[in-house]
């Protein structure tokens, strides 16, 4: 291509033919350019058609398989969002409504009250409300939850496991590559269909 420049140089030295020669060379460049452009367009169309035809399946989003999660705490630290898009959720139907909740209280709490020093949650995101003796209900204040999973660990290790982590899709950016998934030590991050984006625990499966 650049050798053509040399040809122009030689031709240009001779004044008379210079113009016609140059025009011819420019035309050749234009033709080559057109050919490359056509090839590029064809390639793009082919790529788009091929991948497009293959890609017409359900849209997937990130989710945590709660039965694989080990509450390592990376959901709180590795999400690109601050605070994380991962939050604790509560499957109320699984909950024992315990007075001494091991997801709510630190081991050996000083008293079974709502004092901060007794709570496991570092941000106080679990709301404890009295229902009837001796049952208490535990709800999550998502604005405060940072997704550290401490409550899930306590609840699953000593209790029914009704508290667990889920990617909240009102917050998740559905990144190309989920930063938490890349760091998750137990490979608990999976892709779930966008129409059914949650993998909730149920009473009918232990774990």
């Amino acid at each position: 291509m650049r050798a053509a420049g040399g040809a122009v140089g030689q031709a240009g030295a001779r004044e008379g033919e210079a113009m016609t020669e140059q025009e011819k060379v420019v035309t050749r460049r234009e033709v080559l350019r057109g050919l490359w452009r056509g090839a590029g367009l064809l390639g793009l169309a082919g790529l788009g058609g091929w991948l497009g035809a293959r890609g017409r399946r359900q849209r997937l989003v990130w989710q945590i398989d709660p039965y694989k999660c080990t509450w390592c705490g990376k959901c709180a630290t590795h999400c690109v969002l601050e605070p994380s898009a991962v939050k604790c959720v509560h499957a109320y139907a699984m909950c024992g409504y315990c007075k001494l909740c091991t997801g709510y209280y630190v081991p050996e709490p000083l008293a079974l009250d709502t004092a901060a020093e007794n709570q496991l949650c570092p941000t106080g995101a679990i709301r404890r409300t009295f229902v009837e003796d001796p049952y208490y209900e535990y709800g999550i204040d998502e604005a405060l939850c940072i997704g550290c999973g401490k409550c899930g660990k306590g609840c699953t290790t000593f209790g029914n496991g009704s508290l667990f982590l889920q990617v909240r899709h009102d917050r998740c950016r559905n990144c190309n590559e989920c930063a938490i998934a890349a760091a998750c030590p137990s490979f608990a991050f999976v892709r779930a269909p966008a129409e059914e984006p949650y993998l909730l625990k149920t009473r009918f499966r232990a774990g």
């Binding site: 699984m94 909950c95 024992g96 229902v131 009837e132 209900e137 709800g139 029914n160 232990a206």
Partner: peptide, 17 residues
């Protein structure tokens, strides 16, 4: 399942959230 603490039956008819 294998709940360690079976979910209670509320006498006051508490609705689960």
């Amino acid at each position: 399942g294998a709940e360690r603490f079976p979910p209670p039956d509320f006498e006051g008819g508490h609705q689960l959230p």
